[in-house]
């Protein structure tokens, strides 16, 4: 039983990192009906921004909350800028094109970031120096928790609540929701649609950047292709929850995280990558709109 709870806790930690990325996927999908394949690579860039910032300012010499927040902030800002440019130069010119063209472009941008990153940062994995001492593990009834796990859970929870606030309580959040219903009508109501879309990309990318740092804290080996699998799983999480739905993305991500940690714990870790797709396929076959998604009727 203790072992089960331990896997559950590990899974929730993993799931909360998936959730931060899944939120970006789901917001962009909600507003543009586009799967932003490049999102997973923005997350990779987030980890690398953190790596270079901490290297440049020698943050790892003074591990602590200050260094961690500095790295977190830098990578969120950096990723937001990257997200803005991706939308501006790759997706905006194609907004009126057929979906398939946009899809191909998204795949292209994703591969460009991955292999461009390989050229820029080198293909070999880098060691992300710890920004926080792991500290003494805490035991609660035999379940082991360390400081990094708590930080990961805490930071992702705070960011998700912040996002919830932005979407549902602020003016720009209301504009985002309006644009996701109809671009034309939102524009008629005086909402600057282009700005709102850019903002959505920046918001999602900033969350991905934060996820990059949190993942690098937990698994300190980072490489330019790290986003490929992790991001795909986060995307699967968004679909499982019902893509376009913010709460659904979090639920789906937690399910994914727990399921994966159970497979690692009780089966074999070599199957973890196949698991995500198995879940995706089952969900899409039996409930194509996801857990919280609405089924949209196709009209002629």
């Amino acid at each position: 039983m203790t072992e089960f709870i331990q896997h559950l806790v590990n899974g929730l930690g993993l799931g909360s990192m998936y959730a931060l990325i899944a939120l970006g996927y789901t917001m962009v999908f909600g507003i543009l009906q586009l799967i932003n394949f490049a999102h997973s690579d923005v997350y990779m860039l987030g980890a690398f921004f953190g790596y270079y910032v901490s290297k440049f300012f020698n943050l790892s010499l003074h591990p602590g909350y200050g260094s961690l927040s500095a790295a977190l902030l830098c990578s969120m800002v950096g990723c937001a800028i990257v997200g803005f440019f991706i939308e501006r130069f790759a997706y905006r010119p194609l907004r009126k094109s057929p979906r398939i063209n946009v899809l191909i472009t998204a795949v292209g941008v994703s591969l460009f970031l991955e292999f461009g990153g390989q050229l820029l940062f080198g293909a070999d994995p880098k060691y992300f120096a710890p920004l926080l001492e792991p500290g003494e593990p805490i035991f609660i009834g035999g379940v082991q928790l360390n400081r990094i796990q708590l930080i990961v859970l805490g930071v992702s929870l705070a960011l998700m609540l912040g996002l919830q606030f932005i979407i549902f309580k602020t003016k720009i959040g209301r504009a985002m929701r309006a644009v996701s219903f109809s671009h034309t009508n939102a524009a008629l109501m005086g909402i600057p649609v282009d700005f709102v879309i850019s903002f959505t990309f920046m918001l999602g990318s900033a969350l991905a950047g934060a996820a990059g740092i949190l993942v690098a804290l937990t698994y300190p080996k980072i490489d330019p292709l790290m986003g490929m699998m992790f991001g795909l799983k986060a995307f699967v999480a968004a679909v499982v929850g019902g893509i376009g739905n913010v709460t659904g993305a979090v639920i789906g991500a937690l399910i994914m995280g727990v399921a994966e940690s159970m497979v690692i714990g009780y089966l074999a870790s070599t199957y973890r990558d196949a698991l995500a797709f198995a879940i995706l396929i089952i969900i899409l076959l039996f409930r194509p709109a996801g857990i919280l998604g609405k089924n949209v009727k196709e009209k002629v």
Binding site: I35, R99, I100, F235, V239, T270, I281, L284, L285
Partner: peptide, 28 residues
């Protein structure tokens, strides 16, 4: 047979998923 019920982006990602599953199975 199952995945062609899906369209567009979903079909793309499911076929991608099947491709990966095949590879992982061979790997094991």
């Amino acid at each position: 047979l199952p995945s062609l019920r899906l369209k567009g982006d979903y079909l793309a990602i499911v076929t991608l998923g099947f491709g990966e599953i095949i590879r992982v199975l061979i790997l094991n």
